[in-house]
Simulated assay, not measured.
Amino acid sequence: MTDETMISPDDAVTGASEADTGAPSHEDVIRERDEEIASLKDRLLRAAAETENVRRRLEREKVDVSSYAMTGFARDLLGVADNLRRAISALPAEAPGFEAVKTGIEATEREMTSVLARHGITRVVTDGAKLDPNRHQAMLEVDSEHHEPGAIVAELQAGYTIKDRLLRPAMVSVARARTDASA
């Protein structure tokens, strides 16, 4: 036997061995491995959750891109819709010889409105509404006996939304708040 593997009589009495003098016990090794396994499981679960969050975000962005991809084109078409409305308004009510023209322009306007609606583009409501700064742009205030202060009196230019987003605010005139002198 060599001196390295010999147990001294003192060690034999106390039950001490080389394992007790600095080398980790089996329980310590198992505890360290369990902690490492728990740490790796936690990291794996976090990575899986992050991957799922990225997948959901990309799916949501894909839906948004497909829903709102034509926003610029739609804004350009709104000018055409406005001009059709102006053309109808410019024709006299009793215009001999222009009935067919007026009917054609009205049919074109209806078709454009229908196409816009099929793509989720709708007109902002202004009739009888209170001013909503998220949907309306107040261009001027007017005195009105028939409207509450802050109520929309007239629509100057139609506003539109695409799905749930504002495409163009409605430009409106709003009833002015009454002062004591005017009441």
Rank of each mutant, 00 (worst) to 15 (best):
T2D: 06
D3Y: 03
S8V: 02
P9F: 10
G15S: 11
E18M: 03
A19T: 03
P24I: 00
D28W: 00
V29G: 00
R31I: 08
R31M: 06
R31H: 03
E32D: 13
R33D: 06
R33W: 05
E35H: 08
E36A: 15
I37D: 06
S39I: 01
L45F: 04
A49T: 05
A49Q: 09
E50Y: 02
E50V: 06
E52C: 01
E52T: 13
V54L: 12
R55K: 10
R56T: 06
E59R: 02
E59Y: 15
E59S: 07
R60W: 07
R60M: 14
E61K: 03
K62V: 03
D64G: 04
V65N: 10
V65Y: 14
S67P: 00
S67Y: 10
A69R: 15
A69K: 12
A69H: 13
G72M: 09
F73P: 00
R75K: 14
D76S: 11
L77I: 13
L78P: 00
L78S: 00
A81E: 10
D82G: 10
L84P: 08
R86S: 05
R86N: 09
I88F: 00
S89T: 06
A93R: 04
E94I: 08
A95G: 12
A95C: 04
P96A: 07
P96Y: 14
G97N: 02
E99P: 02
A100G: 12
A100F: 08
A100D: 14
A100C: 01
T103M: 03
G104D: 08
S114K: 15
V115D: 00
L116F: 09
H119R: 10
V124M: 04
V125Q: 08
T126L: 05
D127Q: 08
G128M: 04
A129H: 11
R135S: 12
R135C: 09
Q137L: 15
Q137V: 14
A138T: 04
A138R: 02
L140H: 04
E141A: 10
E141T: 04
V142S: 09
D143H: 07
S144H: 02
H147D: 11
H147G: 06
H147N: 11
E148D: 14
E148I: 00
P149I: 02
A151M: 10
V153E: 09
E155A: 15
L156M: 14
Q157D: 15
Q157S: 12
A158G: 05
G159H: 03
I162R: 12
K163F: 09
K163M: 03
D164H: 11
R165A: 14
L166C: 06
L167Q: 10
P169M: 09
A170F: 02
M171D: 15
M171H: 15
V172M: 10
V172E: 14
V172R: 10
V172K: 08
S173I: 03
S173D: 09
S173Y: 11
V174R: 09
R176D: 01
A177R: 05
R178N: 01
R178S: 08
D180Y: 01
S182L: 07
